[in-house]
Design a protein around this nucleic acid. Sequence first.
RNA 1: GGAGAGAUGGCUGAGCGGUUGAAAGCACCGGUCUUGAAAACCGGCAAUGGGGCAACCCAUUCCAGAGUUCGAAUCUCUGUCUCUCCGCCA
Length: 424
Amino acid sequence: MLILKDIRKNPELFKQKLKARFIENSDKQIDHLIQLDSNLRTNLELQQEFQNQRNSISKSLGLIKDKKSDEFIKKTKEVSEIKSKISNLEEAINQLYLGIDEILHNLPNIPDESVPVGSDENSNKEIKKEGKIRDFEFEPLSHEEIGLNLNQIDFETAVNISGSRFVILKKNIAKLERALINFMIDVHTKENDYTEVNVPVLVKEETMFGTGQLPKFKDEQFKTTNNLWLIPTSEVSLTNIVSNQIVAYEQLPLRYVSSSLCFRSEAGAAGKDTKGMMRQHQFTKVELVSIVQPEFRFKELDRLTKSAEVILQKLELPYRVTLLSSGDMGFGAEKTYDLEVWIPSQNKYREISSCSSCGTFQANRMKARYKTIEGKNELLATLNGSGLAVGRTIIAILENYQNKDGTVAIPKVLQSYMGSEIIN
RNA sequence: GGAGAGAUGGCUGAGCGGUUGAAAGCACCGGUCUUGAAAACCGGCAAUGGGGCAACCCAUUCCAGAGUUCGAAUCUCUGUCUCUCCGCCA
């Protein structure tokens, strides 16, 4: 959530930055916000003045011994008049708060200066390419063809029991998922200094609000009949570890890694990636979250992105890094690097990790703060990134490591986890 | 599912309807003492919002929301959450 005080101080800056985010009516929204805020403060001042009067009269009433004296009765009457004024103002104030929240809760974060301005992925900036794209001496198959031929990926049965966008993995490919989780978490804990955490996948509404999934994106989430929500990424649970907390300065940075199932309704993605397991309602993702002082956030973003990249490098998968444009970033992000892995059957790079700095945007929503050296409470900066999406990593391995005979080689770093060198 | 207990400042934990924003202890910060440290002693130490150049002032906050009252942490109702025991279950 953007910080109202900052907007009040410099509305034009926010108008300009939101324009870069291609938000409809952003100018109007900011103007409206400023208007509501100024009305709010006028009313608030007035209300506080009346409250002050009420308090001091009440206090003096407490000192009057004779509760039936004229003075007591007169002052009592006075107070009840003031009270009705206060409650009238209160109603107005509550309406103003609602109006402000309505706008503020639905405005996205503003982009950092280094973010290229553009409405969609066409304005993303390629930062670098790594790894060598394999030159196949045969026509490479897609992962679903490979899995089907090996009888280790089963969409039909999954559709039977759960519907579309679900999959069943079997034998070596099922084991590959488990191996990847262990491999990734091992690297992040041993080499990248992340703390392993195991988190709930069902969370409260306010938890989803904290990281920005709610209220705006409720259609993209699954909700239980008990008013709990299935997380679309463990960024939600991990980041909320610091919600409503005041973290001691010396405890920072906090770095968490977790593997979890992620659930997405894919409401707006009808017809997209309908084949294969590129886009599922349920998938496994290893997630990295860093909690730092705001001044260190961009340094941490580089570190986090590198931590994710290392996984691709160790798996020897070709990938590229892009800097997302202002219009392509997620709701809470101020700057995002995407890691895209090479998918031979599609002849293009596909997103496998998204590493973002959210600045104080999420922290403001979840009241996550830290104590500065001066002893002040300030909002934290939160960052997150996939390290990596496991389902898509399986796709990448199957396709990039496939052999002509339908078997698949196992990347060197995974062989000890798999206990073999080949999937057959 | 049945029965009960509870939710107070960074933590532990008192709290009578009327200077209680809240005792006490711990932690933390500053000082005295000490060669230094510890101990001891003295002092300080909540958040949020608003106003002021500032010292500072005002308002709100004792889980949340309604209510009673001139006045509520303290009384009433509702909700949420936590804990204990029993039952059921992984």
